[in-house]
């Protein structure tokens, strides 16, 4: 009995230790900073496009007026629960003022200027736009953008690859950013969220006859409205189309297990690059495909990120402030 209790105690102690190491080890903020740079750019571009018909999509009386959009929520639904600043904006000039301010925030987030403040503002703004077009014109891109913005605000996302860093360097502070627990926490939460994202993208496909048969990829590729590069040659390669269909379902469902293993991780991330690159290239959803690839980059180790980005950051800092960032 004593042996059993000791074994249970040992197991719990090990599990708590592993939990702590996973969530609370300090890490170099390089990965989080890279995510800020890329996700900020994606947020900026996504919301810049609304400018082409801001009143039509976001304005109070556009294609889907705010009153019609909110009607299904009913009078008892608390306004703070699914909240958008655009639910209260009535005039066009104010709509544009808020829109321009939002673009400035997303631009600041991208270049890392007052990064923490920008991240703190970017998330509620991204959610505001998303709720204004849900339903109406939202799609997976809005979900990924909001997911990325949510976790960026948890950690020091401007510690590297940012104007904030260059500003510190210019003032003579050349110290390397400290490893940070909150940077690790933010990246870990994004990674686990992404696993859940893929799991519930894969499981519902098991309900579909075309995914079971292996023809779903063909039907997806044959939708003219999505197509940017033709995949109609798959008509001659039904077994290949079926292989890709089944591989997609297996990959989505098992992503949450295989991405943590050091041997399968490169394969899983390589598949993510192929699938989302394919969606971007062949199905015209360039922004969604890119946003998903950005989310997958959260699995890159800070050392890998630094190996790739530090030389570029060094050249930029040399050009802008005359000193090379370490």
């Amino acid at each position: 009995m004593k042996g059993l209790l000791a074994a249970i105690r040992g197991y719990l102690s090990d599990a708590w230790g592993a939990w702590n190491t996973f969530w609370f080890s300090p890490t170099d903020p390089a990965t989080l900073s890279m995510l800020r740079l890329l996700a900020g750019g994606m947020l900026l571009y996504t919301h810049l496009i609304w400018s082409l018909d801001l009143s039509g999509f976001i304005g109070p009386d556009g294609y889907v007026p705010v009153s019609v959009l909110r009607a299904p929520q009913g009078p008892d639904f608390p306004a703070w629960s699914a909240w958008s600043v655009f639910f209260w904006i009535k005039s066009t000039w104010l709509l544009w003022v808020v829109h321009v301010l939002a673009l400035v925030v997303f631009a600041c987030l991208t270049v890392g200027f007052f990064s923490r403040t920008a991240a703190l503002l970017a998330f509620p703004l991204a959610v505001s736009y998303a709720y204004r077009v849900t339903p109406g014109a939202f799609f997976g891109l809005d979900k990924v953008n909001c997911m990325l913005a949510l976790y960026l605000l948890l950690g020091p996302c401007g510690a590297r690859y940012s104007l904030d860093r260059l500003w510190r360097l210019r003032r003579g502070d050349a110290t390397d950013p400290e490893p940070s627990v909150s940077a690790n926490l933010a990246v870990r939460l994004l990674q686990v969220h992404l696993c859940i994202f893929y799991l519930f993208s894969g499981l519902p496909k098991l309900d579909g006859s075309t995914w079971q048969l292996g023809t779903a990829l063909w039907w997806g590729a044959s939708i003219t409205e999505y197509r940017s590069v033709s995949l109609l040659w798959l008509a001659d390669w039904p077994k290949f189309a079926a292989l890709l269909t089944h591989a997609t379902v297996f990959w989505e469902i098992f992503y949450c297990c295989l991405v943590w293993n050091r041997f399968t991780k490169p394969l899983v991330l390589g598949m993510a690059f192929c699938v989302h690159g394919g969606i971007a290239l062949f199905m015209g959803m360039i922004t969604f495909g890119t946003a998903m690839i950005i989310a997958n980059l959260s699995f890159l180790k800070p050392e890998t990120v630094r190996k790739i980005l530090d030389p570029v950051a060094g050249r930029v800092s040399l050009a802008l402030v005359g000193k090379k960032v370490s």
Partner: peptide, 16 residues
């Protein structure tokens, strides 16, 4: 709702 994590992720499911 507040965090906009109230979504499904059912892309092209159950069928295109």
């Amino acid at each position: 709702n507040l965090l906009y994590i109230n979504n499904g992720y059912e892309f092209f499911s159950p069928n295109p």
